[in-house]
């Protein structure tokens, strides 16, 4: 069971979100203010935090929670959209969603955040013929049952795709998050790595199905 700490002062929204998320299989602890949240944060896998709260505002509460439990992702949920607020929120929060949000989007983002911290609902993922076991970091070709061994960079690139499912990633974005340094114009390193990666995981590397090329923009892995 994945436990979510939900801090929201609006009763209507609070009860609706709580109900909806519980429906989706999360265990929700709902607080009406930030008081006492620091003590219980460690028992949860994720925090959903409203900005406008009675007493301490969401930014302050969030920063304290991050200090208390840095590994637990925080999703800010706010009706304030000013760019300043967004930037202030993202200084410590892992994601920022503005009201009126769609419950499906909220759920999707929760999934992404949990997966990023390794707490996805299922530790197993199926991409075409590849079975990914996230807890053991193994990739198994289901046709043969054999494990696919990836090099360090290939693994990092593939994991980056898995952490950003259905998202189109430009080669600059992938390069900079995997290599950790600025992408230089015309650098072909990433393309070469992706070609080798495809040779290992695609059935037919010439017409890739898992790592999709979005012409002119980048790559995408659909889940």
């Amino acid at each position: 069971m994945r436990r979510i700490l939900y801090i929201e002062d609006d009763l209507e929204i609070g009860s609706w979100v709580k109900e909806d998320l519980e429906h989706r299989g999360f265990e929700i602890q709902w607080l009406k203010s930030g008081d006492g949240s620091e003590k219980i944060v460690a028992n949860h896998d994720l925090v959903i935090l409203d900005v406008m709260l009675p007493g301490l505002d969401g930014f302050t509460v969030g920063q304290r929670l991050k200090k208390e439990a840095p590994q637990i992702p925080i999703l800010m949920l706010s009706a304030r959209t000013a760019v300043d607020d967004k930037l202030q929120g993202l200084q410590f929060a892992d994601d920022y969603l503005t009201k009126p949000f769609h419950p499906d989007e909220l759920a999707a983002r929760i999934e992404v955040l949990l997966r990023r911290s390794g707490l996805s609902l299922s530790n197993e993922l199926h991409l075409g013929h590849i079975q990914v076991n996230l807890s053991e970091n193994t990739f198994i070709d289901q046709r043969t049952g054999e494990e696919i061994i990836l090099t360090g960079k290939q693994y990092q690139i593939f994991m980056h795709f898995l952490r950003h499912p259905n998202q189109i990633l430009t080669k600059e974005q992938i390069y900079e998050s995997v290599w950790g340094e600025p992408y230089l114009e015309g650098d072909k390193t990433l393309m070469v790595h992706i070609r080798y990666l495809r040779e290992k995981i695609e059935i037919n590397p010439g017409t890739p199905e898992i790592i999709e090329t979005i012409r002119g923009i980048g790559y995408r892995v659909k889940q």
Partner: peptide, 10 residues
Amino acid sequence: LRTPLTTIRG
């Protein structure tokens, strides 16, 4: 303005 909108959506 957004809070009631969220409620309506809910």
